[in-house]
């Protein structure tokens, strides 16, 4: 067992090339290992002190969110809350203050849980993921990153260094809503993110919806503005998912509830697009989760 603290991306990539596994907050890795899900990797490289990974850079047509940015930062950063509100909604629901202080966006997406909270918002925002290895890096659409529960298409020597999110049009809004049985230390029973764009006359010109915890990975569903007008968002979401039964809910309950949650997410995103201010996380405004 060896443990190295990297202070630069290059140092971390060199360690990965030699077989080490990355650790940031450890909120999935250490918890899973102590719980007996898997053994802690024999060689670890800590990436939480690499400043280059902990920055948010606003570019002309996109934002670059370093993979080491914590949930605590995501839920409070004015640029994230302003432009990518669904990401802040999601980050604010993760675990507890302790989880959010050390848990990172890179860890959340690379852990590849189908119940992750930041994944669905990033899908509706059209985000991409930057994967680096010694000597090269590539950018993959986030939907192509996940290949199954806990599995990604990244190779073991690749490090997620950033999430790239395109800029949003002016009259647009996003929201992430999840069904939860309690307000802290909870994992999504089901979740839905929505992104809505409005035309000049206030009608919905574009809509995107992605779902959590109802398929082997986060899924994007096929949906049109006409579905929103017809009130058939719930039906579309329920039809296009493939949930399982587990400790938290049955497949039937998930299939029904994801429709309800998806239509609430679209509604909240549309209200935000129209200029209404709904505080992060939108779950509280909607009264979801026991008091």
């Amino acid at each position: 067992m060896s443990f190295v603290i990297a202070t630069s991306v290059e140092e971390a990539l060199a360690a990965l090339a030699n077989g080490a596994s990355p650790i940031a907050g450890g909120t999935d890795l250490v918890v899973g290992a102590r719980h007996g899900k898997f053994e802690l990797p024999p060689e670890l490289v800590a990436i939480d002190r690499i400043e280059a990974l902990a920055t948010i850079e606003i570019g002309a047509d996109s934002m670059r969110i370093g993979s080491g940015v914590t949930h605590a930062t995501l839920m409070a950063d004015p640029a994230i809350v302003g432009s990518y509100t669904a990401v802040a909604d999601a980050a604010a629901l993760v675990g507890s203050p302790a989880t959010r202080n050390v848990g990172t966006i890179g860890g959340n997406i690379m852990n590849a849980s189908p119940a992750m909270d930041t994944g669905a918002p990033l899908v509706v925002l059209g985000a991409s993921v930057e994967l680096a290895r010694v000597g090269s890096s590539r950018v993959v659409p986030i939907g192509d990153l996940w290949s199954g529960p806990g599995q990604t298409t990244a190779s073991a020597d690749e490090l997620c260094t950033a999430v790239l999110v395109p800029s949003r049009p002016a009259a647009s809004g996003t929201a992430y809503v999840r069904l939860e049985y309690r307000r802290a230390m909870e994992i999504a029973v089901v979740g839905a993110a929505a992104a809505v764009e409005l035309a000049d006359d206030g009608s919905i010109s574009a809509v995107a919806v992605a779902l959590s915890a109802v398929a082997p990975t986060i899924i994007s569903i096929e949906i049109e503005p006409a579905d929103v007008e017809r009130g058939s968002v719930a039906e579309a979401a329920s039809q296009q998912c493939s949930p399982i039964t587990d400790l938290r809910a049955s497949d039937r309950y998930r299939r029904h509830c994801v429709g309800v949650i998806a239509s609430r997410a679209v509604d909240a995103a549309a209200r935000r697009a129209a200029g209404e201010s709904i505080a992060v996380p939108v779950n509280r405004a909607l009264g979801i989760g026991a008091a």
Binding site: F3, I5, I23, G26, T27, V30, V31, R34, L44, A46, D48, A72, P97, A98, T99, N101, V102
Partner: peptide
């Protein structure tokens, strides 16, 4: 200064 769960945090980190 920030709360963490020390049961699931590696001491070396």
């Amino acid at each position: 200064g920030q709360p963490i769960n020390s049961c699931s945090y590696l001491a070396a980190q």
